[in-house]
Nucleic acid binder design. Sequence first.
DNA 1: CTCCTAACGCAAAGATCGCTGCTTTAACGG
DNA 2: CCGTTAAAGCAGCGATCTTTGCGTTAGGAG
Lengths: 181, 181
Amino acid sequence: MSTTSPLRRTGGRSAAVLSAVRQAVEELVGERGVERVTIPMVAERAGVNPTSVYRRWGDAATMINDLATYRLSPDRPLPDTGDLREDLTRWAQEIVDHFRAPAAAALLRGGAAAAGTGSSDCLRHRRAEATVLVERAASAITVDEVIDLVIAPIVYRVLFRPWTLDDELAASLVERLFRGR
Amino acid sequence: MSTTSPLRRTGGRSAAVLSAVRQAVEELVGERGVERVTIPMVAERAGVNPTSVYRRWGDAATMINDLATYRLSPDRPLPDTGDLREDLTRWAQEIVDHFRAPAAAALLRGGAAAAGTGSSDCLRHRRAEATVLVERAASAITVDEVIDLVIAPIVYRVLFRPWTLDDELAASLVERLFRGR
DNA sequence: CTCCTAACGCAAAGATCGCTGCTTTAACGG
DNA sequence: CCGTTAAAGCAGCGATCTTTGCGTTAGGAG
Protein backbone atom coordinates (compact mmCIF):
# COMPACT_ATOMS: atom_id res chain seq x y z
CA MET A 1 0.00 0.00 0.00
CA SER A 2 1.35 3.39 -0.93
CA THR A 3 1.02 5.84 1.91
CA THR A 4 2.59 8.88 0.25
CA SER A 5 0.74 9.26 -3.03
CA PRO A 6 -1.35 7.21 -5.43
CA LEU A 7 1.14 5.26 -7.49
CA ARG A 8 1.41 6.37 -11.10
CA ARG A 9 3.43 4.83 -13.89
CA THR A 10 4.80 7.43 -16.20
CA GLY A 11 7.78 5.82 -17.87
CA GLY A 12 8.51 2.88 -20.10
CA ARG A 13 5.58 1.42 -21.92
CA SER A 14 3.09 4.08 -20.80
CA ALA A 15 5.34 6.81 -22.11
CA ALA A 16 5.76 4.98 -25.39
CA VAL A 17 2.01 4.64 -25.80
CA LEU A 18 1.48 8.30 -25.00
CA SER A 19 4.06 9.34 -27.53
CA ALA A 20 2.73 7.10 -30.28
CA VAL A 21 -0.84 8.21 -29.67
CA ARG A 22 0.15 11.87 -29.66
CA GLN A 23 1.83 11.58 -33.03
CA ALA A 24 -1.07 9.62 -34.49
CA VAL A 25 -3.56 12.22 -33.29
CA GLU A 26 -1.59 15.06 -34.79
CA GLU A 27 -1.29 13.31 -38.13
CA LEU A 28 -4.89 12.21 -38.33
CA VAL A 29 -6.32 15.54 -37.24
CA GLY A 30 -4.34 17.21 -40.00
CA GLU A 31 -5.39 14.65 -42.58
CA ARG A 32 -9.08 14.18 -41.82
CA GLY A 33 -10.18 17.04 -39.58
CA VAL A 34 -11.13 16.88 -35.94
CA GLU A 35 -14.59 15.45 -36.46
CA ARG A 36 -13.49 12.48 -38.45
CA VAL A 37 -10.86 11.20 -36.05
CA THR A 38 -11.98 8.18 -34.06
CA ILE A 39 -10.25 6.31 -31.29
CA PRO A 40 -9.91 3.00 -33.15
CA MET A 41 -8.27 4.92 -35.98
CA VAL A 42 -5.78 6.59 -33.70
CA ALA A 43 -5.07 3.34 -31.89
CA GLU A 44 -4.39 1.47 -35.09
CA ARG A 45 -1.97 4.06 -36.42
CA ALA A 46 -0.25 4.28 -33.05
CA GLY A 47 0.07 0.50 -32.93
CA VAL A 48 -1.82 0.43 -29.66
CA ASN A 49 -4.93 -1.30 -28.44
CA PRO A 50 -8.06 0.88 -28.63
CA THR A 51 -8.96 -0.13 -25.10
CA SER A 52 -5.89 1.58 -23.75
CA VAL A 53 -6.97 4.82 -25.36
CA TYR A 54 -10.54 4.54 -24.14
CA ARG A 55 -9.37 3.84 -20.61
CA ARG A 56 -7.00 6.76 -20.54
CA TRP A 57 -9.04 9.51 -22.20
CA GLY A 58 -12.60 8.28 -22.41
CA ASP A 59 -13.55 9.87 -25.72
CA ALA A 60 -12.06 11.40 -28.83
CA ALA A 61 -12.79 15.02 -27.92
CA THR A 62 -11.00 14.74 -24.58
CA MET A 63 -8.06 12.99 -26.19
CA ILE A 64 -7.67 15.59 -28.92
CA ASN A 65 -8.00 18.44 -26.46
CA ASP A 66 -5.34 16.88 -24.28
CA LEU A 67 -2.87 15.92 -26.98
CA ALA A 68 -3.20 18.33 -29.83
CA THR A 69 -0.66 20.66 -28.33
CA TYR A 70 -1.04 24.19 -29.48
CA ARG A 71 2.42 25.12 -30.63
CA LEU A 72 1.43 28.65 -29.66
CA SER A 73 1.73 28.06 -25.96
CA PRO A 74 0.30 30.77 -23.71
CA ASP A 75 3.70 30.95 -22.01
CA ARG A 76 5.78 31.73 -25.08
CA PRO A 77 7.48 35.14 -25.00
CA LEU A 78 5.77 37.86 -27.03
CA PRO A 79 7.76 40.06 -29.41
CA ASP A 80 9.08 43.15 -27.63
CA THR A 81 11.07 45.37 -29.95
CA GLY A 82 9.87 48.64 -28.49
CA ASP A 83 7.91 49.34 -31.66
CA LEU A 84 4.23 48.38 -31.59
CA ARG A 85 3.96 47.97 -35.31
CA GLU A 86 6.96 45.68 -35.45
CA ASP A 87 5.69 43.69 -32.48
CA LEU A 88 2.26 43.26 -34.04
CA THR A 89 3.76 42.25 -37.37
CA ARG A 90 5.92 39.54 -35.83
CA TRP A 91 3.07 38.38 -33.64
CA ALA A 92 0.68 38.16 -36.60
CA GLN A 93 3.34 36.33 -38.59
CA GLU A 94 3.65 33.74 -35.82
CA ILE A 95 -0.07 33.17 -35.96
CA VAL A 96 -0.18 32.84 -39.74
CA ASP A 97 2.73 30.41 -39.69
CA HIS A 98 1.05 28.41 -36.98
CA PHE A 99 -2.19 27.99 -38.84
CA ARG A 100 -0.52 26.99 -42.05
CA ALA A 101 0.03 23.61 -40.44
CA PRO A 102 -2.98 21.47 -41.45
CA ALA A 103 -3.34 20.10 -37.94
CA ALA A 104 -3.54 23.59 -36.46
CA ALA A 105 -6.11 24.65 -39.06
CA ALA A 106 -8.15 21.54 -38.33
CA LEU A 107 -8.08 22.34 -34.62
CA LEU A 108 -9.36 25.84 -35.31
CA ARG A 109 -12.20 24.36 -37.31
CA GLY A 110 -13.00 22.11 -34.39
CA GLY A 111 -12.82 25.05 -32.04
CA ALA A 112 -15.22 27.00 -34.23
CA ALA A 113 -17.61 24.06 -34.32
CA ALA A 114 -17.50 23.66 -30.54
CA ALA A 115 -17.62 27.36 -29.75
CA GLY A 116 -21.40 27.25 -29.79
CA THR A 117 -21.96 24.37 -27.40
CA GLY A 118 -19.17 24.83 -24.87
CA SER A 119 -19.09 28.65 -24.97
CA SER A 120 -15.31 28.40 -24.93
CA ASP A 121 -13.39 30.71 -27.22
CA CYS A 122 -10.32 28.90 -28.49
CA LEU A 123 -8.85 32.23 -29.62
CA ARG A 124 -9.07 33.96 -26.28
CA HIS A 125 -5.31 33.62 -25.81
CA ARG A 126 -4.73 35.58 -28.98
CA ARG A 127 -6.99 38.30 -27.67
CA ALA A 128 -5.12 38.38 -24.38
CA GLU A 129 -1.83 38.66 -26.22
CA ALA A 130 -3.14 41.52 -28.33
CA THR A 131 -4.16 43.27 -25.14
CA VAL A 132 -0.65 42.97 -23.75
CA LEU A 133 0.97 44.32 -26.90
CA VAL A 134 -1.42 47.23 -27.29
CA GLU A 135 -1.54 48.34 -23.67
CA ARG A 136 2.21 48.15 -23.30
CA ALA A 137 2.64 50.59 -26.17
CA ALA A 138 -0.03 52.98 -24.92
CA SER A 139 -0.99 53.59 -28.53
CA ALA A 140 -4.24 54.79 -30.06
CA ILE A 141 -4.73 51.32 -31.51
CA THR A 142 -7.37 49.34 -29.63
CA VAL A 143 -7.61 45.62 -29.05
CA ASP A 144 -10.85 45.45 -30.98
CA GLU A 145 -9.17 47.02 -33.97
CA VAL A 146 -6.43 44.40 -33.84
CA ILE A 147 -9.03 41.67 -33.69
CA ASP A 148 -11.14 43.05 -36.53
CA LEU A 149 -8.31 44.05 -38.85
CA VAL A 150 -5.68 41.40 -38.20
CA ILE A 151 -7.04 38.33 -36.42
CA ALA A 152 -10.44 38.14 -38.10
CA PRO A 153 -9.06 38.18 -41.66
CA ILE A 154 -6.47 35.55 -40.74
CA VAL A 155 -9.11 33.34 -39.16
CA TYR A 156 -11.41 33.79 -42.13
CA ARG A 157 -8.66 32.68 -44.47
CA VAL A 158 -7.64 29.73 -42.32
CA LEU A 159 -11.21 28.48 -42.26
CA PHE A 160 -12.45 29.17 -45.76
CA ARG A 161 -9.54 30.13 -48.02
CA PRO A 162 -6.39 28.53 -46.59
CA TRP A 163 -4.44 28.86 -49.84
CA THR A 164 -4.44 32.65 -49.39
CA LEU A 165 -2.25 32.45 -46.28
CA ASP A 166 0.82 33.84 -48.01
CA ASP A 167 4.02 35.27 -46.61
CA GLU A 168 2.97 38.90 -47.01
CA LEU A 169 -0.39 38.56 -45.29
CA ALA A 170 0.63 39.38 -41.72
CA ALA A 171 2.62 42.46 -42.69
CA SER A 172 -0.04 43.81 -45.02
CA LEU A 173 -2.81 43.39 -42.46
CA VAL A 174 -0.82 45.24 -39.81
CA GLU A 175 0.06 47.89 -42.34
CA ARG A 176 -3.62 48.40 -43.05
CA LEU A 177 -4.27 48.60 -39.33
CA PHE A 178 -1.87 51.52 -39.00
CA ARG A 179 -2.50 53.18 -42.33
CA GLY A 180 -6.21 53.00 -42.18
CA ARG A 181 -7.58 50.67 -44.83
CA MET B 1 -34.09 9.65 -73.50
CA SER B 2 -33.40 13.27 -72.86
CA THR B 3 -31.01 14.66 -75.44
CA THR B 4 -30.77 18.18 -74.03
CA SER B 5 -29.71 17.72 -70.42
CA PRO B 6 -29.65 15.09 -67.69
CA LEU B 7 -33.12 15.06 -66.22
CA ARG B 8 -33.34 16.41 -62.68
CA ARG B 9 -36.38 16.58 -60.44
CA THR B 10 -36.43 19.67 -58.31
CA GLY B 11 -40.07 20.14 -57.38
CA GLY B 12 -42.77 18.32 -55.48
CA ARG B 13 -41.59 15.57 -53.21
CA SER B 14 -37.89 16.26 -53.63
CA ALA B 15 -38.39 19.87 -52.66
CA ALA B 16 -40.45 18.80 -49.67
CA VAL B 17 -37.68 16.45 -48.51
CA LEU B 18 -35.09 19.16 -48.95
CA SER B 19 -37.15 21.61 -46.96
CA ALA B 20 -37.87 19.16 -44.15
CA VAL B 21 -34.24 18.12 -43.92
CA ARG B 22 -33.09 21.71 -43.90
CA GLN B 23 -35.35 22.57 -41.01
CA ALA B 24 -34.37 19.44 -39.10
CA VAL B 25 -30.67 20.17 -39.57
CA GLU B 26 -31.05 23.76 -38.42
CA GLU B 27 -32.91 22.67 -35.32
CA LEU B 28 -30.61 19.82 -34.42
CA VAL B 29 -27.40 21.69 -35.08
CA GLY B 30 -28.70 24.50 -32.89
CA GLU B 31 -29.72 22.10 -30.14
CA ARG B 32 -26.83 19.66 -30.04
CA GLY B 33 -23.93 21.27 -31.88
CA VAL B 34 -22.55 20.32 -35.24
CA GLU B 35 -20.51 17.34 -34.15
CA ARG B 36 -23.35 15.50 -32.50
CA VAL B 37 -25.76 15.56 -35.41
CA THR B 38 -26.10 12.29 -37.30
CA ILE B 39 -27.96 11.48 -40.48
CA PRO B 40 -30.41 9.00 -38.91
CA MET B 41 -31.25 11.70 -36.37
CA VAL B 42 -31.94 14.31 -39.03
CA ALA B 43 -33.94 11.85 -41.12
CA GLU B 44 -36.16 10.90 -38.21
CA ARG B 45 -36.98 14.48 -37.30
CA ALA B 46 -37.55 15.38 -40.94
CA GLY B 47 -39.89 12.40 -41.34
CA VAL B 48 -37.72 11.11 -44.14
CA ASN B 49 -35.93 7.86 -44.75
CA PRO B 50 -32.22 7.96 -43.84
CA THR B 51 -31.41 6.35 -47.17
CA SER B 52 -32.70 9.38 -49.01
CA VAL B 53 -30.33 11.59 -47.08
CA TYR B 54 -27.36 9.28 -47.61
CA ARG B 55 -28.09 9.08 -51.32
CA ARG B 56 -28.38 12.83 -51.74
CA TRP B 57 -25.46 14.07 -49.63
CA GLY B 58 -23.34 11.08 -48.69
CA ASP B 59 -22.35 12.20 -45.21
CA ALA B 60 -23.28 14.65 -42.48
CA ALA B 61 -20.47 17.12 -43.14
CA THR B 62 -21.38 17.48 -46.81
CA MET B 63 -25.04 17.89 -45.96
CA ILE B 64 -24.46 20.56 -43.34
CA ASN B 65 -22.03 22.43 -45.52
CA ASP B 66 -24.43 22.36 -48.44
CA LEU B 67 -27.34 23.65 -46.39
CA ALA B 68 -25.15 26.32 -44.80
CA THR B 69 -24.11 27.50 -48.24
CA TYR B 70 -27.61 28.04 -49.56
CA ARG B 71 -29.31 29.33 -46.44
CA LEU B 72 -29.14 32.95 -47.59
CA SER B 73 -30.86 32.60 -50.95
CA PRO B 74 -28.61 33.43 -53.89
CA ASP B 75 -31.65 34.72 -55.77
CA ARG B 76 -32.64 37.38 -53.30
CA PRO B 77 -32.33 40.93 -54.71
CA LEU B 78 -29.25 42.87 -53.64
CA PRO B 79 -29.56 46.44 -52.40
CA ASP B 80 -29.27 48.93 -55.27
CA THR B 81 -29.58 52.50 -54.07
CA GLY B 82 -27.04 53.94 -56.46
CA ASP B 83 -24.67 54.57 -53.53
CA LEU B 84 -22.05 51.89 -52.90
CA ARG B 85 -21.65 52.71 -49.26
CA GLU B 86 -25.36 52.54 -48.63
CA ASP B 87 -25.61 49.28 -50.59
CA LEU B 88 -22.78 47.69 -48.63
CA THR B 89 -24.23 48.83 -45.34
CA ARG B 90 -27.63 47.32 -46.06
CA TRP B 91 -26.03 44.15 -47.41
CA ALA B 92 -23.82 43.77 -44.32
CA GLN B 93 -26.82 44.46 -42.12
CA GLU B 94 -28.71 41.62 -43.81
CA ILE B 95 -25.85 39.28 -43.09
CA VAL B 96 -25.53 40.32 -39.46
CA ASP B 97 -29.27 39.96 -38.93
CA HIS B 98 -29.20 36.57 -40.57
CA PHE B 99 -26.45 35.22 -38.36
CA ARG B 100 -28.01 36.48 -35.17
CA ALA B 101 -30.38 33.56 -35.44
CA PRO B 102 -28.76 30.76 -33.40
CA ALA B 103 -29.62 28.19 -36.06
CA ALA B 104 -27.85 30.20 -38.75
CA ALA B 105 -24.80 30.65 -36.54
CA ALA B 106 -24.74 26.94 -35.85
CA LEU B 107 -24.84 26.21 -39.56
CA LEU B 108 -21.91 28.53 -40.14
CA ARG B 109 -19.98 26.62 -37.50
CA GLY B 110 -20.78 23.46 -39.39
CA GLY B 111 -19.68 25.04 -42.63
CA ALA B 112 -16.41 26.11 -41.03
CA ALA B 113 -15.85 22.64 -39.63
CA ALA B 114 -16.57 20.96 -42.94
CA ALA B 115 -14.58 23.41 -45.04
CA GLY B 116 -11.46 21.40 -44.38
CA THR B 117 -12.59 18.03 -45.68
CA GLY B 118 -14.03 19.17 -48.98
CA SER B 119 -12.57 22.28 -50.53
CA SER B 120 -15.93 23.99 -50.27
CA ASP B 121 -16.50 27.49 -49.02
CA CYS B 122 -19.99 27.99 -47.65
CA LEU B 123 -19.50 31.76 -47.85
CA ARG B 124 -18.66 31.85 -51.52
CA HIS B 125 -22.04 33.39 -52.35
CA ARG B 126 -21.32 36.28 -50.05
CA ARG B 127 -18.11 36.83 -51.93
CA ALA B 128 -19.96 36.74 -55.23
CA GLU B 129 -22.45 39.27 -53.93
CA ALA B 130 -19.66 41.57 -52.80
CA THR B 131 -18.19 41.33 -56.28
CA VAL B 132 -21.46 42.43 -57.85
CA LEU B 133 -21.83 45.41 -55.53
CA VAL B 134 -18.26 46.58 -55.91
CA GLU B 135 -17.94 46.13 -59.67
CA ARG B 136 -21.25 47.80 -60.33
CA ALA B 137 -20.07 50.92 -58.54
CA ALA B 138 -16.67 50.99 -60.26
CA SER B 139 -15.20 52.20 -57.00
CA ALA B 140 -11.64 51.99 -55.66
CA ILE B 141 -12.90 49.53 -53.06
CA THR B 142 -11.87 45.96 -53.86
CA VAL B 143 -13.66 42.72 -53.11
CA ASP B 144 -10.80 41.58 -50.89
CA GLU B 145 -11.12 44.71 -48.81
CA VAL B 146 -14.83 44.05 -48.33
CA ILE B 147 -14.05 40.49 -47.27
CA ASP B 148 -11.26 41.46 -44.87
CA LEU B 149 -12.90 44.51 -43.34
CA VAL B 150 -16.58 43.59 -43.31
CA ILE B 151 -17.21 39.87 -43.77
CA ALA B 152 -14.26 38.53 -41.79
CA PRO B 153 -15.05 40.52 -38.62
CA ILE B 154 -18.70 39.51 -38.83
CA VAL B 155 -17.78 35.86 -39.27
CA TYR B 156 -15.29 36.03 -36.42
CA ARG B 157 -17.96 37.41 -34.13
CA VAL B 158 -20.59 34.91 -35.22
CA LEU B 159 -18.24 32.04 -34.49
CA PHE B 160 -16.45 33.14 -31.35
CA ARG B 161 -18.19 36.16 -29.84
CA PRO B 162 -21.82 36.09 -30.95
CA TRP B 163 -22.96 38.48 -28.23
CA THR B 164 -21.04 41.29 -29.95
CA LEU B 165 -23.32 41.23 -33.02
CA ASP B 166 -25.03 44.50 -32.20
CA ASP B 167 -27.16 46.80 -34.34
CA GLU B 168 -24.35 49.22 -35.13
CA LEU B 169 -21.83 46.60 -36.27
CA ALA B 170 -22.63 46.52 -39.98
CA ALA B 171 -22.63 50.29 -40.35
CA SER B 172 -19.43 50.77 -38.36
CA LEU B 173 -17.54 48.13 -40.33
CA VAL B 174 -18.56 49.67 -43.64
CA GLU B 175 -17.67 53.08 -42.28
CA ARG B 176 -14.21 51.81 -41.42
CA LEU B 177 -13.92 50.34 -44.89
CA PHE B 178 -14.48 53.76 -46.46
CA ARG B 179 -12.79 55.92 -43.86
CA GLY B 180 -9.75 53.80 -43.37
CA ARG B 181 -9.76 52.47 -39.82
C1' DC C 1 -53.20 11.02 -70.48
C1' DT C 2 -49.14 8.02 -70.80
C1' DC C 3 -44.42 6.79 -70.56
C1' DC C 4 -39.96 7.02 -68.52
C1' DT C 5 -37.14 7.18 -64.80
C1' DA C 6 -35.33 10.10 -60.91
C1' DA C 7 -35.93 10.02 -56.34
C1' DC C 8 -37.91 7.99 -52.33
C1' DG C 9 -39.07 4.13 -48.97
C1' DC C 10 -38.10 -0.34 -47.00
C1' DA C 11 -35.50 -4.02 -45.09
C1' DA C 12 -31.56 -6.59 -44.36
C1' DA C 13 -26.65 -7.04 -44.40
C1' DG C 14 -22.15 -5.06 -43.18
C1' DA C 15 -19.05 -2.04 -40.83
C1' DT C 16 -17.64 0.66 -36.99
C1' DC C 17 -17.76 2.38 -32.66
C1' DG C 18 -17.81 2.56 -27.52
C1' DC C 19 -17.74 -0.29 -23.62
C1' DT C 20 -16.73 -4.13 -20.14
C1' DG C 21 -14.95 -8.45 -17.99
C1' DC C 22 -10.80 -10.74 -17.82
C1' DT C 23 -5.83 -11.87 -18.59
C1' DT C 24 -1.13 -10.46 -19.22
C1' DT C 25 2.73 -7.41 -18.94
C1' DA C 26 5.98 -4.56 -16.79
C1' DA C 27 6.87 -0.09 -13.90
C1' DC C 28 8.00 1.30 -9.42
C1' DG C 29 9.04 0.65 -4.29
C1' DG C 30 11.31 -2.00 -1.00
C1' DC D 1 15.99 -9.27 -7.06
C1' DC D 2 10.76 -9.77 -5.57
C1' DG D 3 6.06 -8.38 -4.84
C1' DT D 4 2.45 -5.28 -5.82
C1' DT D 5 -0.57 -3.37 -8.93
C1' DA D 6 -1.02 0.32 -12.62
C1' DA D 7 -1.59 0.09 -17.13
C1' DA D 8 -1.77 -2.43 -21.55
C1' DG D 9 -3.70 -6.19 -24.28
C1' DC D 10 -7.41 -9.36 -25.73
C1' DA D 11 -12.05 -10.96 -26.81
C1' DG D 12 -16.61 -10.23 -27.40
C1' DC D 13 -21.20 -7.70 -26.66
C1' DG D 14 -24.56 -4.33 -28.00
C1' DA D 15 -25.80 -0.13 -30.22
C1' DT D 16 -25.52 2.83 -33.91
C1' DC D 17 -24.20 4.19 -38.25
C1' DT D 18 -23.62 3.15 -43.28
C1' DT D 19 -24.33 0.69 -47.37
C1' DT D 20 -26.87 -2.03 -50.79
C1' DG D 21 -30.50 -4.35 -53.45
C1' DC D 22 -35.05 -3.92 -54.81
C1' DG D 23 -39.80 -2.47 -55.06
C1' DT D 24 -42.78 1.88 -55.11
C1' DT D 25 -44.04 6.60 -55.94
C1' DA D 26 -44.48 10.58 -58.49
C1' DG D 27 -42.11 14.62 -61.34
C1' DG D 28 -41.41 16.11 -65.94
C1' DA D 29 -41.71 15.66 -71.10
C1' DG D 30 -44.20 14.51 -75.15
